[in-house]
Computed example of a mutant assay.
Amino acid sequence: MLSTIALLTTLLFTPVTSHGGCLNYTVGETWYPGYSPYDDPTPQDAAPWMPQRKWTTNEPILSPTNTSLACNAPGDPARAYIPITAGQTITAVYMYWIHTVGPMIAWMARCPHDDCHAAADATALSWFKIGQRGLESGTIETGVWFQGSFSRWDGGPSLWGEKVPEGLEPGRYLVRHEVVSLHSARKPQFYVQCAHLEVSGEGRERPGDEYLTRIPGVWSMEQPEINIDIYAPGVSNSTVYNIPGPPVWKG
């Protein structure tokens, strides 16, 4: 865990680029570091306090069948866990997010034997949604999406919070934050990061099969919501966008 001041300093001096990702997390008033693809990997790879899985590029993943879709590339397991109680909110922290169109989905997956380090292959896990944000108002092309409304341009962090379901069974999980940007016609861009969570609480619930999916596997170019041209007649002026995949599990 790093102090708030140290983390904010890191955020403010992160290079501004055309793409980005989740750089930090908060639970309540406590900040936790993310992996920085812009900085020297050696100390980060060895850091005992790092809860986020390794990612080495801020460029998007362009194929819904790419194995990196699970936890980015290379997706190496982290050494630490973010402690959180079921019912609390985990907030993903982004900086200078410039895209504005497309859904944002937060996922979790239970690590077998409560060992997320051993569960190196995130493609083999069963993922469930804990939250999703999409079109908030207006039309698909020119309306307000959460992806656009959460962005800040005053130098402050863009914050995306989702609640860990209150009834969730305690254990160790991966949390995965995914942004799907749809501004390029029929060329979706996927931005994902994963972190390790240690969930506590009195819950005893698990999501049923209807909420579970594999990643990759949940998205397909056969889905009109993914293989979409937001500028096409009949699409651009639509006021409805249904996020594909399983429903959100709220416990």
Rank of each mutant, 00 (worst) to 15 (best):
N58Q: 08
A73E: 12
I82L: 02
Q52H: 11
S68C: 11
Q52G: 14
L62Q: 04
A80F: 13
P51C: 11
L62K: 12
T65D: 06
A80H: 10
C71G: 13
K54Y: 04
R79L: 13
T57G: 14
P83D: 06
R79I: 03
P74S: 15
G87A: 12
A86P: 08
E59W: 07
W55A: 01
P83L: 07
N58C: 06
I82Y: 05
R53P: 06
C71A: 12
S68P: 02
P51R: 10
S68L: 02
G87F: 06
Q52T: 13
D76E: 14
A86S: 13
A73G: 04
P51E: 12
A78L: 04
N66M: 03
L62H: 10
T57I: 06
C71L: 06
I84Q: 10
P60I: 00
E59V: 00
A86T: 08
Q52M: 15
P60L: 01
G87Q: 12
A73H: 10
R53Q: 11
P64V: 03
Q52N: 14
A78T: 05
K54N: 10
W55L: 14
G75N: 12
R53I: 01
A70I: 01
T67L: 08
R53W: 15
S63Y: 00
W55Q: 08
S68R: 03
M50F: 12
Q88G: 08
L69E: 01
N72R: 06
T65F: 00
P74V: 11
A80S: 14
A73P: 00
Q88M: 01
R79A: 13
A78N: 03
K54C: 07
K54G: 02
S63L: 02
A86E: 04
C71W: 04
P77M: 04
G75Y: 03
A70M: 01
A78F: 02
R79Q: 14
T56E: 13
P83V: 02
I61V: 11
